[in-house]
Amino acid sequence: MIFLNFVQEEIMKNKILIIDDDPDIIEAATVLLESKDYKVFSETDPENGFKSALNNKPDLIILDIMMTEPDDGFFLLKKLKKNNITAPVIIYSSVSNALGYEFGKNSLIQVDEFIDKPAEPEMLLNTIEKLLNKTK
């Protein structure tokens, strides 16, 4: 019975995928999100990030922009949308505002939210909550 409860909770947990080339950003975010009972997956490059998005079917994706290439994140985002991955995406980048301005209005890529690195924990959590509630 206890075991069953545990499994049920695991299923109920929202899954979040973090794609960022900085392992420290991933770790810090993972600790934060896991403390709020999210199930967190992470990848440090766009290709594995894409595979993980297909396999793990996350409820929300946190995506960096400047990885190996300065605009990796946007290409990955395009690819995700093309492959019908509808999970909300938070662009989490240190130049998100700068680039977001240029890309944000582009109707080809729909971005749900831009957050400038580093985010206050509360703000990041609130944004995640807000987006997850919207999709439910």
């Binding site: 420290d24 950003i25 934060l32 580093p118 206050e120």
Partner: peptide
């Protein structure tokens, strides 16, 4: 610096 602040926040 962003990474440092993220850890500091934790």
């Amino acid at each position: 610096i962003a990474a440092i602040v993220s850890y500091l926040n934790l």
